[in-house]
Amino acid sequence: MAVVEQETKESWIWFLEIFADDIGRPEEFQLVFISDRQKGLIPAIETLFPTVEHRYCVKHIYNNFKVDHKGLELKDALWRCAAATTVREFERCMQYIRDLDEKAYEYLVNIALAQWTRSRFTPRALTDCLGQAYLGNVGVD
């Protein structure tokens, strides 16, 4: 845990360097970062660990999504999309969302698919977690 003045790229780099010193290089262990996309975090991970997979916590995606896209049907559809294991299944789920709410669909397709849906996760990582395990704001699975 760390306390910093602001969540910036520089403070995340500092934190992640200490993290790597403590556990070793994340790419050597095939770790996956799962985050809530905090300010500065994405560029810090890209700078320090460009080959490490970085996914977005679906719970946090949903928390932002529900501000403008309310309802249990949309919530369930988003989670079905995230949990889909094949591209075909994912595309069916996304079409369902599109049929329900075009703006909800647009919101989701503008988030990098490889970072929130199992159907696009790489096989090199040894997890298909959607964002339940956390180390501070950064999930490590």
Rank of each mutant, 00 (worst) to 15 (best):
A104H: 03
K70D: 08
R80A: 15
Y62S: 08
I45A: 13
I34V: 14
L74Q: 07
V52E: 11
I34F: 02
E46K: 10
L72P: 03
I34R: 01
R37D: 15
V67D: 05
D99S: 11
L74Y: 02
D99P: 01
H54K: 05
G40R: 02
K70E: 14
R55N: 12
P50F: 09
L72C: 09
T47L: 06
I34C: 08
L78P: 08
D76F: 00
T47M: 05
D36T: 02
L100E: 12
E91M: 10
S35L: 03
F65R: 00
L72M: 10
K75G: 13
I97S: 13
Y105Q: 05
C81W: 01
K103G: 03
H69G: 12
H60Y: 13
I97L: 09
L48C: 06
L74N: 09
A83C: 08
F49H: 08
R88Q: 13
A44Q: 04
L74I: 03
E102T: 01
K39I: 08
R98W: 06
T85E: 14
M94W: 05
L48G: 11
H69Q: 10
H54C: 09
R37K: 13
V52Y: 04
A104E: 09
Y96K: 09
Y96S: 12
N64F: 00
R37H: 12
Q95K: 11
K59C: 08
W79R: 05
Q95Y: 07
F65M: 05
A77Y: 02
A83H: 09
